[in-house]
Design a binder for these strands. Structure first.
Lengths: 195, 195
DNA sequence: TCCTAAGCGGACCGCGCGGTCAACTTGCTA
DNA sequence: TAGCAAGTTGACCGCGCGGTCCGCTTAGGA
């Protein structure tokens, strides 16, 4: 699918700097980060950005792909951890922590652009579901929780913290703690059925 | 502070239609809703929008003020409810439900524009804190929860649901259920201290 | 009924955005 | 080391945004 000859040395260097700059700029300014700012941060011209990625959306998808891939790798590693409940918590902590560098809500807007991204997202989903099933089997979390619940809820702490001006950088841990306690079997109430 | 003579009848009508249209448009498109679209929806000219509100930010603040005021009113009413725990849950449910019409994350971006908004936000905070203290007193929620926690967490369900394409309209109830269970005393773990 | 000030509206402005292009530079290969 | 394809660049384009302005309309008191 990509039998292209290898990039020229300078082009590879620029591409790397571009992805790094885009990741930082998206983290700071969200989807509103401008291509011009990204190019300036990477120390390259704006035209070069569009040579590497045909549109801003594709650039975003490439950045998001990196993140999702990293999370999927982590989830697979944690599948062999001794304590399944602790493994799930560690995964959610790591995911939330990484989100501070790149809000995963991008994956909501970056759909359909890149087939590879869709595949990697599926892998992430599979791995998380396995992680959740192990935790359920160990009785660490309530049985009515799904992998999708975990994916969605692990995005919440950073979101709610974004409402607080000058929040301490680890405030998200407080909300992840509360949310994870909501996943535990103790004191769990039946969840409302949805249509 | 506003000893202005009353609005002319047509101006009052337009102002009402404008606020309604702005509320709907902001709900559908977030901060990206354009003033031109809002004006069109209200059936008035763009210039008229700026006659009523000097900037888009002030218009947004007016819309948000309405919402916050309604929530503060509800919170005060629920202070006299028989079951403090159920009252808090009902408040969070109502708040989350209303958010589907207007994402409260706007209050993050609408700060400093309007003194009245800041005052109303304080009133909301006071009322929620009282609601939380009552629930704590009744043993319905764990003692380490604050009013701020509730304000922040009640915004989470709608956010996480926004990741799901074609989500059922009441999916947010599932996540509010999980989160509220995290507030309960049973099975609560000590929360990480934040710096 | 008439006069006037309050209200209205849409053409218009400057800006910054995503994206294009043709002239220029440079890493690689023979 | 010569030549060329690959890569770079920044001026430029069209667009839609928030916001302005002035000629027109109209509510409503005298």
């Amino acid at each position: 699918m990509t039998p292209d000859r290898p990039l020229r040395a300078d082009a590879a260097r620029n591409r790397y700097a571009l992805l790094k700059a885009a990741s930082e700029e998206f983290a700071e300014h969200g989807l509103d980060a401008s291509v011009a700012d990204i190019a300036r941060r990477a120390g390259i011209g704006k035209g070069t950005v569009f040579r590497h990625f045909p549109t801003k959306d594709v650039l975003l998808a490439a950045v998001v792909l990196d993140r999702i891939d990293g999370l999927a790798l982590l989830a697979r590693e944690l599948l062999t951890a001794a304590d399944p409940g602790a493994a799930l918590l560690e995964f959610m902590e790591s995911a939330a922590g990484r989100q501070r560098q790149l809000d995963l809500s991008f994956l909501r807007d970056a759909g359909g652009v890149n087939d590879l991204l869709d595949d990697t997202r599926s892998e992430l989903f599979t791995a998380i579901t396995a992680l959740v099933d192990r935790a359920k089997g160990a009785g660490a979390i309530r049985p009515d929780i799904t992998g999708m619940d975990v994916i969605l809820l692990m995005c919440a702490p950073n979101y709610v913290v974004s409402f607080v001006p000058d929040a301490p950088s680890d405030l998200w841990r407080r909300y992840l703690g509360i949310i994870f306690d909501g996943l535990r079997p103790e004191g769990a109430r039946p969840l409302p059925s949805v249509s």
